[in-house]
Simulated scan of single mutants.
Amino acid sequence: MKAEVVVVEQSLEQNSVRQPEGAPSADLRPEVPHPARMYDYYLGGKDNFPADREAAERALAANPEFRSTARANRGFLQRAVRFVAQQGVDQFLDIGTGIPTAGNTHEIAQQVDPQARVVYVDNDPIVLTHARALMAGMGRGRTDVLQADLRDPAGILAAAQVRELLDFDRPVALVLAAVLHFLPAEDKPFAIVEELLAALAPGSYLVLSHGTADFLPPEVRDRVTGVYTKATAPLVGRSREEVRQFFDGLELLEPGVVTVPLWRPEEEPAEGSDRVSMYGAVARKS
């Protein structure tokens, strides 16, 4: 009887991808480099266009560590999501998820809690295309995907699939991995994070990673940012202190804001891990 109940529950909670009214255009714009597709290229993926590959190669020529930084960020995301799930949080709002690859938020969270629920949010239509394939059919827990823009936090929070899947009266993990560095100051990234956190219940978590130029010579920084000025989003590296400000008002967990390989590593970090151009941290809302 128990097995039959499980089957019924899974059939009622099929994963889905929906696009709300007023969502961003579904035009892929393959001729313009997109950060999500460039990131996919850094990770060794194949879901990118020639313009993305050419731009990524220019960025790698300026800073060959881009590829290892992307992989280090991926490892941080997986360790942080696993940690948060182990604290009993079973709801995740992952904004700026990028193109799905192995070890996604829902896969890691559902390894800890098979009933964990995840909403992915991204503004790139190619992400939705791949998400449909990834989320097709029945699965453990429930996963939904929303095409929306981080610069519209109110729209994200009010979206039907977000409200249907996540219970904001209980703790939610807000995941902002390697996305805020695509928001310049005029987009008010600190206010966006503050608005998203204000909607979450006490006991919620913020998982955040952010690119930095702290360890780059000015000429390298300028070459890299120059590549992204021709993409669909600029690249804005922020200092360690600026990244720490995203956690204002939260309980910042040990080891604080560190380069991503140094956040609770599972093995001895490689030499130079303290100079990787990406900071990461996890904090709890009291």
Rank of each mutant, 00 (worst) to 15 (best):
V7P: 03
V8T: 14
V8L: 14
V8R: 15
Q14D: 09
S16Q: 13
R18P: 00
P20L: 07
A23R: 12
L28E: 12
P30D: 04
V32M: 09
M38C: 10
Y39V: 01
Y41K: 08
G45R: 05
D47K: 14
A51Q: 09
A55C: 04
L60Y: 06
A62Y: 09
F66I: 03
S68E: 07
T69S: 11
N73F: 06
N73V: 01
A80F: 07
A80L: 00
F83G: 05
F83K: 10
V84G: 09
V84K: 10
G88K: 08
F92D: 00
F92W: 07
D94M: 02
G98K: 10
G98Q: 04
G98F: 02
P100Q: 04
T105G: 08
I108M: 13
V112T: 14
V119Y: 03
P125T: 08
T129S: 12
H130K: 13
R132L: 01
M138T: 15
G141T: 13
R142N: 08
D144S: 13
L150G: 06
G155Y: 03
D169I: 01
P171Q: 11
V175T: 12
A178M: 01
A178L: 04
A178C: 05
A185T: 14
D187F: 11
I192Q: 11
E194P: 01
E195H: 15
A199L: 00
L200S: 08
P202L: 00
Y205S: 02
Y205P: 00
L206M: 04
L206I: 03
H210Q: 10
P218H: 15
V224H: 09
G226P: 05
V227F: 05
T229F: 13
T229P: 05
K230P: 00
G237R: 06
S239D: 00
S239I: 01
S239F: 04
E241W: 12
Q245K: 14
F246S: 04
F246Y: 15
D248F: 11
V257W: 03
T259H: 06
T259K: 03
L262C: 07
P265E: 07
E266S: 14
E266V: 13
E268W: 11
G272K: 08
D274I: 04
D274C: 04
D274F: 07
R275L: 03
V276Y: 08
M278R: 11
G280N: 08
